[in-house]
Simulated scan of single mutants.
Amino acid sequence: MQFDKPFGEMLTIVDPKEDDFDKWLQVPSAPYLERLDAMCAQWGDRLGVRFYDFWGKPFDAALVGQLPNVRNLSVDSLWEARNLDAIARLEHLSKLHLGVFNLDDKTILGKLPIARLSELILSETNTKALDLAPLANAAKLRRLYLAGHHKNIASLTALDRLQEFTFNAKKGLDLSFINGMANLRALKFNLGGTASIADIQLPKLEDIAFTMVRNLVELGDMQRFPSLRRLFMQDQQQLESARFGPGNTNLEHLWFYNCQKLDRVEGLADCNSLKSLRWIFTDRDPASLKLPKSLTHLHVLSGKRGAEAAEKAKIEAMGYVAGDHGDAWFFYK
């Protein structure tokens, strides 16, 4: 359920099948919110309630007090907001997306029900000083997404139950705090400028992803992730090599897209669970690759105009499916 403009006595219900705005249904706000709150109580976190845009006007978060049973709340894509501490009084809240660009209160996380949350998204703001220290108390947190926030990020090492972490690591950031996330299953680097992840060791990690990470030049030996199932790498312009081996007993899918300097992917033949390899924009001849018998899907293309059909035909002649495996894509899941 989404609301994109300030509330009055009446609400307009958008009808996507009706182009005439004047024909859209008008309903009283108060009873509508009461009904929505009852739905939140019934459906739990399966029902998301979102307040966004508000036509560039400040959002008064006191409004959420009329939804005491909301479990899944998004207050995002907003220029300004006030009374955000009203969110702390939502006793049933378990999922929160907070995205207010002009966020004046740098300590707001200490005023929110962090200890009750299982999922948290913090969108980009105009300040780099948002204090992450209160997140050390988020003992129930399972999924965390940070966009551009790093102050006291080392506090996150206490999140030993976290299962999915997405963030943009700025250049020079010490990533050793991630090693405290002992139960992490998915680690996703989105933008940022980290040069190396060689110091990260996560025995339970299953998925790792990199999208447009500037300066990334070193992965280290990926056998230090024995549970790794999938690697997703897109738009990496500095990375030249990746190394896997017999220690990657669970590795099933490798995805490389637009990694212009990547010319060596070592140890593939020793990855006996590998099912698919996607490598787009490469000059490597698929026939030159040493691949395991477990591989079924091979999608290795040069990206040159007019060459795709012939390249796929060659792969199919080798006995592989010249396309992507359905389980290989995971970045936005």
Rank of each mutant, 00 (worst) to 15 (best):
M1N: 11
F3R: 04
K5N: 15
F7H: 11
E9W: 10
E9M: 08
T12M: 06
V14P: 07
P16M: 15
K17G: 10
D20K: 10
Y32C: 08
M39S: 04
W43K: 00
L47I: 00
G48W: 01
K57R: 15
P58A: 13
L63T: 12
L63Y: 11
G65D: 12
L73T: 00
S74W: 13
R82V: 11
N83V: 10
A88M: 04
R89S: 10
S94W: 01
D104S: 09
D105F: 14
L109V: 02
L109A: 09
T127L: 00
A136V: 05
K140Y: 09
L141N: 08
R143P: 01
N152W: 06
S155T: 15
L156S: 06
L159P: 05
R161L: 10
F167G: 00
K171V: 01
D174N: 03
D174Y: 00
G180W: 05
M181C: 02
A195H: 07
A198D: 03
A198L: 01
Q201R: 12
E206L: 10
D207G: 05
L216T: 03
L219G: 05
S227Y: 15
F232M: 06
Q234G: 00
Q236W: 06
N250R: 14
L254Y: 09
N258V: 04
D263M: 13
E266C: 03
A269R: 04
N272V: 12
L277M: 03
R284S: 05
D285H: 05
V300F: 07
G303M: 11
R305C: 10
A307D: 10
K314N: 07
I315M: 04
M318P: 03
M318T: 05
